[in-house]
Design a binder for these strands. Structure first.
Lengths: 225, 225
DNA sequence: AGCAGAATTAAGGCAAAATTAAGTGCTGAA
DNA sequence: TTCAGCACTTAATTTTGCCTTAATTCTGCT
């Protein structure tokens, strides 16, 4: 699930960015309306959701909004609008009909995440309970995995967490440290090759070519097959 | 299934509370709107249904209604509204669209229970009164269970509540904390392995492979067989 | 060849879950 | 009102199987 974050306040952007990444979203961040339009027009890398802060330097946010939406999408592109708590609210509220939502600053990060989930659902991204990549599919509700017509296998906690991270962002390389921090809470960091072992055990189940190694950098699963 | 009862008449509240508990619901009871909002915001222990008496001391019930709903992001939160038989009815009826229901005082407890079941069903908890999964079927009205041509057994309250939660969302894993919050109300939280014991007793009746364990995560029943 | 990073393997510790049994309280019947 | 029986909780004990550790082998790169 790719999110385009349009926000010119560096600090705020950083915070939101971090929270989104932690939730497993892929995030593109831009600070100007023109860049935003460019991102939206990309063929294959277009975002699935937009978070738009009104009050950008180069264009009025409300002006940008219809342009974001106007593209020839197969889906409506849902926009979560961030706005200060003042008169602008009224205008924004009027826009709400479009399948978008808005949030007044200041807000809790948890609420932002919740609203995003609602938007996703409304836009027809059914609960992404099953991630399917190549011959491997992973059911995130039941923690079970299936390989190309084989039996369903239940994955233990850590293996599931690991595979989920990799499959939720196919094509992205995760370093050993990143995987460690995804699997372990900060206060129980692990001082050995536990991740390697879990990777090994996963590969026994997925087939050895599903998780690729990039020596010296990290691991990934391919975006397509 | 956890119900939040918002009612300032002590006597009435007591009666409803008892009836609900007898049915196997976990009940949280509050007398003021502010407390109600606090309950709804709880992460894992949020209620699944609300019974709201209009005419609270600290806030107009109709005012409270949208606030209740707004706070629940993941599912629509169904509300059963209790109201006196007078002019207010009209307004309430107008609100009905939201998937809620209302009941005019005085009413029979049996009717209240029936309406609750309707609300549950409408909110997508159980399609039907009988949930059937593999060789096990559960009648949510009579609390009876049947396994593959065996005899019908009546389940005790807690076992019923537990099995119901699991069977209403097959394929989904419930953690120990989640099950606890579904079975017990706030002021009665249990500090031991009661859930484990009920699971054990259920498995004696359903067969040991019907409820599956995901170690370190929780329990589930299979979506299909 | 040598080295660093990655893969493999096996074993032991340990936390989570299952099990059992006993005790408490409630309910309904005599 | 008392008593019997059931449901439920508590607590202690056993069992299970995941996770980590650590030692060793393998691989690709310089």
């Amino acid at each position: 699930m790719k999110v385009l974050l349009i926000e010119d306040d560096e600090l705020l952007a950083k915070g939101i960015h971090a929270a989104l990444v932690r939730e497993g979203y892929a995030v593109d961040h831009v600070a100007r309306a023109s860049e935003a339009l460019a991102m939206v027009r990309q063929k294959d890398a277009a975002p699935d959701l937009v978070i738009l802060d009104l009050g950008l330097p180069d264009m009025d946010g409300l002006e940008l909004l219809p342009k974001l939406r106007r593209k020839d999408y197969d889906r409506p592109l849902p926009v979560l609008i961030l706005t200060a708590r003042d008169g602008i609210n009224d205008k924004v509220a009027g826009l709400d009909s479009g399948g978008d939502d808005y949030l007044t600053k200041p807000f809790e990060v948890a609420e932002l995440l919740a609203r995003l989930r609602v938007l996703e659902r409304r836009a027809g991204y059914g609960e992404t309970a099953v991630i399917q990549l190549g011959k491997v599919s992973l059911d995130t509700a039941s923690h079970r995995m299936q390989v190309a017509g084989g039996d369903e296998v239940e994955l233990p906690r850590r293996e599931f967490a690991l595979l989920r991270v990799l499959m939720e962002n196919p094509g992205r390389i995760y370093s050993r440290e990143q995987l460690n921090s995804k699997l372990y809470s900060w206060d129980d960091e692990v001082a050995s090759n536990a991740v390697d072992v879990h990777l090994h055990n996963l590969r026994k189940k997925t087939g050895s070519d599903f998780i690729r190694t990039v020596r010296g950098v990290g691991w990934l699963v391919e975006k397509n097959a």
